[in-house]
Computed example of a mutant assay.
Amino acid sequence: MTTLWDTTGTAVVKALAAERRTGGGVTSGLALTLVVVLDEKDTADVEAAVSIAAARHPMRVLAVIRRQLDAPVPRLDAEVEIGGRYGPVESVVLRMYGRLGLHAESVTLPLLAPDAPVVTWWYSETPQVIAQDPLGVFADRRITNVIRDPDPAASLRQRAVDYAPGDTDLTWTVITPWRAALASAFDTVHTPAVSVVVKGNPVDPSAQLLAGWLSSRLGLYVPVEAAEGKYISSVDLHFGDEYTVTLRNDNYKLIMSRPGQMDSIAPFPNRSTGDVLAEELRRLDADQPYAQALGAVTGHSDLSSRPAVRTHIWNDPALAAQEA
């Protein structure tokens, strides 16, 4: 690992090239560049998650840590490594002090892997307006995680207001097993669903998105009814011939109950952030089912038709503080 103190972007680029020569990095083998925006306190969690995702997707990781934006003198510290804590990847950790953090793209742009898609992931709190963060403007895909925000339900609504094709959220990716199981429940029925109810925490973004996905697929209003547990506990499907299918999460097992049949039981493990991130990185195009689910649950019907390209909106926290 090469550590650079009070350095420049040019020096970081040279250090990465030197590490690649000695470590055997191969640019042509990189599937993407993952830009991670995080706080210092989250470093260990991000390292664990990225190392799992990197085992499935060869990538270059640029970890951006903005520190002390009010520091009087801008400074850049960097760690450059091939392999190591972030797994089998080329990784650069960039710690930015002072107003350099407002211009993080000036350091990250020269470090992007050539001819590879760019994915920006905000592990820490999501920006209210992604276009105010240049790291989101130049990305092909943008991954948020509203469950980490102070008010996840409000943040999910804001994601719809601020949506552009290419956006997604890990609370959507978390419910992939639920969506797969629900799709399989329709294999043995011959009449359309007449009502569906999701039971769980009504303010949980995953429960809301699952209800939104079902609403968009079935053309029904699907509510989230309160039930025990922090997340999704069960889903009831009612069909036109009074046939009812219930899926419930019971201690990491998914149990599907149908009239006249034995319960079907399948493993339903609690997936790590790294597993969920790895799944999300499998697709680098716009996620239309997510847009439809988000639109259904927030009342926005135009999400997929919005422009995919964002224009940077300058946002200076110092000016905002003065106006306040």
Rank of each mutant, 00 (worst) to 15 (best):
T3R: 15
L4S: 02
L4P: 00
T7P: 01
T8A: 07
V12M: 06
V12D: 07
V13K: 10
K14P: 00
L16Y: 06
L16K: 08
E19Q: 11
R21Y: 08
G23K: 10
V26I: 11
T27M: 13
S28T: 12
L30M: 11
A31Q: 14
L32D: 06
L32C: 12
T33K: 08
V37C: 12
E40H: 12
D42A: 14
D42G: 02
T43R: 14
D45C: 04
A49L: 06
V50K: 02
L62T: 01
R66C: 07
A71F: 07
P72W: 08
V73D: 11
P74I: 03
E79A: 12
E81P: 02
E81Y: 04
I82L: 13
G83K: 09
G84P: 00
G87A: 06
G87T: 02
G87C: 03
G87L: 06
G87N: 06
P88I: 01
P88T: 01
V89G: 04
S91F: 05
S91L: 05
R95F: 01
G98T: 05
L100S: 04
A104R: 07
V107H: 07
P114N: 09
P114C: 09
D115N: 14
D115P: 03
W122N: 09
Y123M: 07
T126L: 11
I130M: 15
Q132M: 11
D133C: 07
L135W: 07
L135Q: 09
F138T: 05
D140E: 15
N145E: 11
N145D: 11
I147Y: 15
P150I: 08
A154Q: 15
S155P: 00
S155Y: 00
V161M: 12
D162I: 00
D167I: 00
D167W: 09
T176L: 13
T176R: 13
W178P: 00
A181I: 02
A183S: 11
S184H: 10
F186W: 12
F186V: 07
T188Q: 12
V189P: 00
A193V: 06
A193S: 11
A193C: 07
A193W: 03
V194T: 14
V197I: 14
V198C: 05
K199H: 14
D204N: 15
P205D: 08
S206Y: 02
A207R: 01
A207C: 04
A211N: 03
L214C: 04
Y221T: 15
P223K: 08
A226H: 12
S234W: 03
S234Y: 00
D236Y: 03
L237A: 00
E242H: 15
V245K: 03
L247Q: 01
N249W: 10
N251P: 00
Y252H: 14
L254H: 05
I255Y: 07
I255F: 06
M256K: 11
S257R: 12
S257W: 00
R258C: 00
G260C: 03
A266T: 11
F268P: 02
N270C: 09
T273W: 13
L277Y: 11
E280W: 05
R283L: 14
L284T: 06
A286R: 09
A286H: 10
Q288A: 11
L294G: 05
G295T: 01
G295V: 02
V297G: 04
T298E: 08
G299Q: 04
S301R: 13
D302K: 08
L303F: 05
S304F: 09
S305G: 14
R310K: 13
R310G: 03
R310M: 15
W314K: 14
P317Q: 06
A320Q: 14
E323M: 15
A324H: 13
